[in-house]
């Protein structure tokens, strides 16, 4: 923790860390707060048919912002993105298939226990 280490460390930061400034992160947080307020607004006002899609879009945007900026994925090595996105996409595909199968394909009408279905 002597000064030599510190300055050396700062020199090192410059080439690998292209994140935002502190103020930049605060701005991102404010944006996230606003998006959350928008989400919560759907509870107080009726948005009709656009409510669910807009909530999903807001969720994805917030998710994306936190992952890209707070978790640095936008600035960091692609290896991290591959690892994380593989898990994320796999989870979405697999559980979407499972949910579809269980919610829509199972026990269709006109199908009794003896039939092949």
């Amino acid at each position: 923790m002597n000064t030599a280490t510190v300055s050396e460390d700062e020199g090192h930061q410059e080439h690998h860390d292209h994140g935002l400034s502190d103020f930049g992160y605060i701005k991102v947080a404010i944006l996230l707060g606003v998006l959350t307020a928008l989400e919560v607004a759907t509870y107080f006002f009726d948005f009709g048919v656009v409510e669910t899609p807009s909530l999903l879009i807001l969720m994805v945007v917030k998710f994306q912002i936190v992952v890209s900026y707070f978790m640095h994925l936008k600035f960091d090595s692609k290896v991290f993105s591959y690892l994380f996105v593989t898990g994320l996409v796999l989870a979405m595909l697999v559980f979407a298939a499972m949910g579809t199968s269980m919610a829509f394909w199972q026990n269709p009408s006109g199908c009794d226990a003896s039939a092949f279905c």
Partner: peptide, 24 residues
């Protein structure tokens, strides 16, 4: 750091399973 990202990728599946269990 690679380990942590691998773990987080793995955890996506954990919460994916839990969330879909709840939704179903």
């Amino acid at each position: 750091k690679v380990t942590m990202w691998a773990f987080l990728g793995s955890d996506c599946l954990l919460f994916g399973a839990l969330i879909s269990t709840y939704l179903l």
